[in-house]
Amino acid sequence: MVKHYEFFVTTEDEYYTTYIGDTVKAFIEESGVQNGIVSVVTAHTNCGIIVTEPLDCILSDLNVLLHRLVDDDAEYSHAHFLPTYGRTSANAYGHLRSILVGNSTTLSLVNGKACMGEAQEIVFMEFDGPQARKVFVDIIGE
Rank of each mutant, 00 (worst) to 15 (best):
T17G: 08
A79I: 06
T105Y: 11
L62V: 11
L69A: 00
T105W: 11
G32Y: 11
V41T: 13
P130C: 10
S60N: 15
Y19W: 14
Y15L: 03
R87M: 05
T88K: 10
T17F: 15
F8W: 07
F7N: 09
T52R: 04
Q34H: 10
I49N: 04
G36Y: 02
N35V: 12
L96C: 04
G48E: 07
V40W: 00
E29H: 10
C47T: 13
L100P: 03
C57S: 15
V41F: 13
Y15M: 05
V2M: 06
D73G: 08
V24K: 07
M125A: 08
T17M: 10
V41S: 10
P54R: 13
R133I: 05
C47M: 07
V64H: 13
G32E: 07
S60I: 11
N63D: 12
F136N: 09
V40I: 15
L107P: 01
N46Q: 08
H95S: 01
N35H: 12
G112H: 14
G32Q: 11
D128M: 01
G21K: 14
T84F: 10
D138V: 07
V2Q: 08
A79H: 10
T18W: 07
N63G: 06
I49R: 02
F124T: 06
Q34G: 08
S60G: 13
G36D: 01
M1D: 09
G94P: 04
I139F: 06
Y16H: 09
I140C: 02
Q120D: 13
N91M: 09
E121Y: 02
G112E: 12
T18C: 11
V51E: 12
Y15K: 05
F127Y: 02
S39G: 11
T23M: 11
G32D: 06
A26V: 10
D128N: 08
S108I: 15
K113Q: 14
L82V: 10
I58T: 14
V135S: 05
I50H: 08
I20R: 06
I37N: 11
T52C: 13
C115Q: 14
E75C: 03
L59D: 12
Y93E: 04
H80G: 07
H44S: 04
L65E: 05
C57K: 15
V40R: 09
M125D: 01
E29M: 02
I139P: 00
A90W: 04
T45H: 03
D13L: 04
A43L: 13
G94V: 00
S31F: 07
A132P: 05
I20S: 09
P54L: 11
F81D: 03
V70M: 00
H4P: 08
L82G: 05
S77V: 01
Y93S: 04
F81W: 10
S60F: 12
G21N: 13
F81Q: 01
E75G: 07
V135E: 04
E29D: 08
V24H: 06
A79K: 02
